[in-house]
Design a protein around this nucleic acid. Sequence first.
DNA 1: GACCTGCTGCGGGTTG
Length: 741
Amino acid sequence: MNSPTSASEALHFDRLHPLVRRWVWQQGWNELHDIQDAAIPAILDGNNDVLIGAATAAGKTEAAFLPICSKIAGQSGPGIQALYVGPLKALINDQFRRMEELCEVLEIRTHRWHGDVAGTRKQAMLRNPSGILLITPESLEAMFVLRGTHIPRLFASLQYVVIDELHSFLDTERGAQLLSQLHRLEIAVKRQIPRIGLSATLGDMSLAAAQLRPSDGDKVTILESQASGQDLRLQVRSYVDERPAAPSDTDAGEETSVRGIADHLFANLRGKTNLVFANARSRVELYAAELADRSLHAGVPNEFHAHHGNLAKELREDVEAMLKDPTKPTTAVCTTTLEMGIDIGAIAQVAQIGPPPSVASLRQRLGRSGRRNEPAILRAYCASMAVDAETPLLDRLQLPLVQTIASIELLLDRWCEPPEPAQLHLSTLIQQLLSLIAQHSGVLPLEAYRVLCGRGSPFFIVTSTQFAELLRTLGSKDVLTQSNDGTLLLGGRGEPTVNHYTFYAAFQTSEEYRLIHSGRQLGTMPIDFPLYEDLLLVFAGQRWRVTAIHEEDKVVQLTPAPGGKPPQLGVSAGLVHAEVRVRMRTLLEDDRAAAYLDLQSRTLLEQARREYATLQLDHCPIITDGADTLLLPWTGDRQLHTLAAILNETGMEATVDGAALRLIGTPRSAALTAMAKIADSPAPGPDQLARKVENKTTAKFDDWLGEDLLCDQFGSASLDCIGAVEAARLVAKASAAGSST
DNA sequence: GACCTGCTGCGGGTTG
């Protein structure tokens, strides 16, 4: 790894263009950040790819663009010289504004291109392409499809590609799309173009490098900021719910913790600008409404507003404007919408309700606070169950609280989830194949395989056999057709798909209902619960009654109402990484308590540790729970699900229950025998195991894959057979050792 | 499985 060396800073700085240096002085900067200095030789010298990892506000954008602008200044050439790809339109707008200032003095032209940019501006750029282009992957896709023949001319002078918020592209269909586009771009201009990846949240720099430049990750220059992170003030607060008297009465107990958390938020956040992350849209709505109620009762202006992806654009922008306005104290209760990118000004505190979906996500959220030399403040709120004689055994371990603490500990250790090993991304391969055909008005099969799956492409692991199978399936479904000379052309279903504007996105979106109040659209919602007139619900932080449902137009009419519950959209978390579970075990076997735990959390953790010891889980991670057996291999959700699939294949009934694997109606001895058998057998093939799994279609074009390819796809994306067998070995070994003592 | 991201061309209207 290349480390920044501050001693030679003056030398590096001198290598910048004189006008760039003047611009730096004009900003009033005394010196460059370590990362900005280190990036100068790495970017100016070379033809190397560069990966820049540094905390929020460490100046990653400037680290890339000070040297890039130095290099391209005075070479105004025909064609775009630097391409910036960002995941959000709002982020592109922000970066465009910042970049314009610097580029103006250098006489470098800047263009932004996304769905909200006027067609006339796009036309102007096409007539006279030069300088820097800021774009989304979707708009770049539209360029390939609609202006395929212009691509070589537009990018003939391209010298750099910058990928902002690189982490948001890793392990996703959208990331495979972007990397395929960049590969196709390099083929069009017949040379490799240096890539510069920027991110604050990369768990493993070499794994990220391997994705930035598929097949050649070891040649990527890695620059990681040595600057110490911001000061951090932490607190974990627990609130206890009583167990409901009857199983059907699930709301009664839960309300205690919701009230307690809302009370504390209301008392502590008013008067400043804050973010509250509530994990699920339904939780966002619940807490926003609870906080608005408290403002009403206290007779004070309401400072609490909901913000999530289903709210109408105008409502979200209102909240964003309030966040940016330093004269208006505002707390946004939000999902992941405010986790990334756009500059929302100085944030006083970040609150997290429930375990964060991942450590990476927690780091992103924390990065929103504590800029401008203020410490970052994080409060994590946790709802826990009161424990009595009736409490189910698994609930006694207080796993949500333990997961919250484990995530924080890993964050303090500067760990976050690394990218997963390569997936096939066959859905996006279909999209790229159709796009390639549109770009060239037809392509030969061998050429298609060479371009899309050759060395350096994200689909390099797709075999020629798999590709041939893909072509056959697409042909049989009339997505593709072939001319007499073998050229692949768009078929009866392929043609309208590519010609519709929704084609450009690689990711899947579902159909949703529009919610309307007196002619104004409040937002949209995927409705997967019974919908009827007079139903009470909460949306946009307010309470409503349903007055009419128009099934055909997918419209729901609302009127304000006093009561109402948030729509049940599900509250389960995402996939927990194995490392988090390992740390949870460590915490349960430890006897220390971090200073940032409040008294309630400390008490609950001590209780959980006593239960852990009583159940002798340190010796043998198995619990007998009535007729069921619970296994706690302390591994990730992916591995647990794979283990469940292996067990189901042998005729046992296994499901994932939080951090545990539940073997229904299975005695302890039978569970142990099964684990020993899995531990002693070679790991099954993921594609074979996938055959037993229903619901394998998840990505946009998965419906166009045949069963064989779908199994290959699902196996590579969702199953970890080796990890599952390792988990079984751990259980088998521990139980063998436990029984001998 | 939670959450999120994005998108064209054209016709028709209004405004300067």
